[in-house]
Design a protein around this nucleic acid. Structure first.
Lengths: 350, 350
DNA sequence: ACCATAAGTTCAGGAAATAAACAAATCAAC
DNA sequence: GTTGATTTGTTTATTTCCTGAACTTATGGT
């Protein structure tokens, strides 16, 4: 942070007194051992909500990203109704934790769509049918808590940066692999949202020119070949009875040519998109977060091979591609981390 | 900058006294008019050198990016020889400008290859046959001037941000279109170099899977289809006698099917790469800097159409794609701006 | 037991930002 | 014209906060 030893000493003392930091382990070396500091788990609490599924999950998260409680509420497309449902669900979520109630410093919402850079307004969401909805304001007025909203993939990226495996990586991209494909970039240690909030929308990059029509209006989007939904549909079109990647992998291992074809085509598309990501942005890590599916079979192998084969040979293998199976709570946890990030760092300047 | 009126007042006064800033025009409005400040052209001078051609151009630039003098020197692959040649060329370049000699605050070098984040070492350059060459140190020792080196496209991007049409754009990408294709990103107002210095290397993204072999070892790289060199070679392969884009455009306008084919293929490839750039990074502007060629004919039209057709329809037309014909001095001017940037902003922290 | 090494604290001195009052320059309205 | 509103830009006392240097603490090595 460019501060002297003395300044850090004072700031750390204050933050420990505030209950935000606490001393963890000591590290031995030459000389007096260092005492490591970390966020105090009970220093602050946040609520995260995912509007990606029905019923919508709500989680209570501590300052280390641990989930302390979990609730669900029905999904609605009406912002006012959503705010009311959240307000109703909060007491149950916080019940029995009076410190959490007192130190509840923020609320985050993850949704599919575009969000403005103030993380306050939903500019557009096809899934929710929204256009310029000031969701953060509506919720914070109803619930009396600082509220921030964010795109699903970007929320997961922030979560990985704050609490996950990307803590020490300055530049990385998260690919969220589910029914649809999302992506978000961290650049220079900060979330990069793009000039219109569209950075990372790799789902609709053209990966098979002239390929299958996409719901976006174009053809050959990555989403039409590599998403879970696309894989299911390709399997169906091939006349296969199985739907999930797991089943397809089993079939492929048995030598079913149609299953091999589907997994190859999907893995190839995703691998090419990741290769482009590496060539364009040279991230320090690519993290694929998937709720379902497997990346240790043919699909994953083809994906990795294609990714390696389509970057400058000099760079092949230089960018770690990690796959990370996550539970259904990623989105809600990601949402909570958006609130935590705003509490920690504050709103972005400019 | 997050500073109070009073603080700005004092800082501005000091900088004007130092000769770095000066008052330019006054702007009328309600109340007392504002006095705009700008860098004083004669507040600082920089030298820029391009190692991209033989003979290598050297320019003397003022603090507004204007070129005051120009020299050339033979190109060498030996860092020590280069340092010596620069030291020899400097007196001529500065002759007759004693203020420039006194206020020469930096020297920049543009080259084709990878540079580390301290802008001091050339990690690798195929063109120059280098591997981990501490060029900045070698030159600064010989010449006694603070020296910084940078990749060619990244240098042009910094130049556009400091002095060109991207002054007020926080997020943009520059595509340098020449014998080869280069690219660099500004993100959040800062040059983003990537984790290995490879951000923006779009030349070797696979744009025609299974296409022509590339000197990098892969196939179907953008460089094999859309660069000036590739266009010349495709024209030759089509049996056309003309080489330049200008001639091909003339032929295409006359109805020459082969010329149309070549321009279509190249424009399509560049357009698709730009579409990917928009989908992945959502920049506020894309600036194509070209020394030769034309973008107002078939080639440019196909490029723009393909770019528009391959981004999310919602975003089509939202990202300005500007083409900008530049003279041969861009690289040297860009190099000078790297030195200016380091004088203005200082080295990147972290 | 002693020294070297590094972590962490204390405190005086100083650099730099702020707030608030003030001065200056224009426009709009009467 | 004159007056008042409005906004820019400056001044100065005050406050905040950082640094440097000396000091204390805790460990490993010899």
């Amino acid at each position: 942070m460019g501060l002297s030893k003395a300044a850090m000493s004072g700031i750390a003392r204050d933050l420990i007194a505030l209950g935000v930091l606490h001393e963890t382990e000591t590290v031995q070396g030459q000389g007096r051992p260092s005492i490591l500091l970390d966020l105090h788990p009970e220093g602050a609490f946040f609520v995260g909500i995912s509007l990606l599924e029905d019923p919508a999950p709500l989680v209570l998260s501590d300052f280390n990203g641990n989930i302390l409680a979990r609730q669900t509420m029905p999904l609605s497309r009406d912002p006012g109704v959503i705010a009311g449902l959240i307000a109703d669900a909060l007491p149950k979520l916080l019940s029995g934790r009076k410190d959490a109630k007192r130190k509840l410093y923020g609320l985050g919402v993850a949704l599919s769509g575009f969000v403005d850079e103030r993380q306050a307004n939903c500019v557009q969401s096809t899934l929710l049918g929204w256009q310029d909805v000031p969701l953060a304001q509506i919720i914070s007025q109803k619930c009396g808590i600082d509220t921030f909203i964010e795109n699903d993939a970007k929320a997961v990226a922030v979560s990985e940066k704050l609490f996950g495996s990307a803590r020490d990586v300055q530049n990385f991209s998260v690919v969220s692999f589910d029914d649809g494909i999302g992506c978000a970039h961290f650049i220079g240690g900060k979330l990069y949202r793009g000039n219109h909030g569209g950075a990372g929308e790799i789902a609709h990059c053209t990966i098979e020119p002239g390929g299958s029509p996409c719901r976006c209006g174009k053809r050959g989007c990555l989403d039409t070949v590599a998403s879970l939904k696309a894989i299911r549909e390709m399997a169906k079109a091939e006349g296969l009875s199985c739907h999930s990647i797991e089943d397809l992998e089993t079939e492929a291992a048995r030598g079913n040519a149609a299953a091999v074809r589907v997994l190859h085509r999907a893995g190839n598309a995703l691998g090419l998109a990741i290769a482009h990501l590496i060539q364009f942005n040279d991230p320090g890590m690519i993290l694929i977060a998937h709720v379902e599916g497997r990346f240790d079979g043919l699909f994953g192998t083809v994906m990795r091979q294609t990714a390696e084969a389509n970057v400058l040979p000099r760079y092949a293998g230089q960018t770690p591609i990690r796959t990370h199976r996550v539970d259904r709570d990623v989105w809600a946890r990601g949402a909570a981390s958006i609130a935590a990030h705003n509490f920690l760092i504050g709103p972005t300047p400019n």
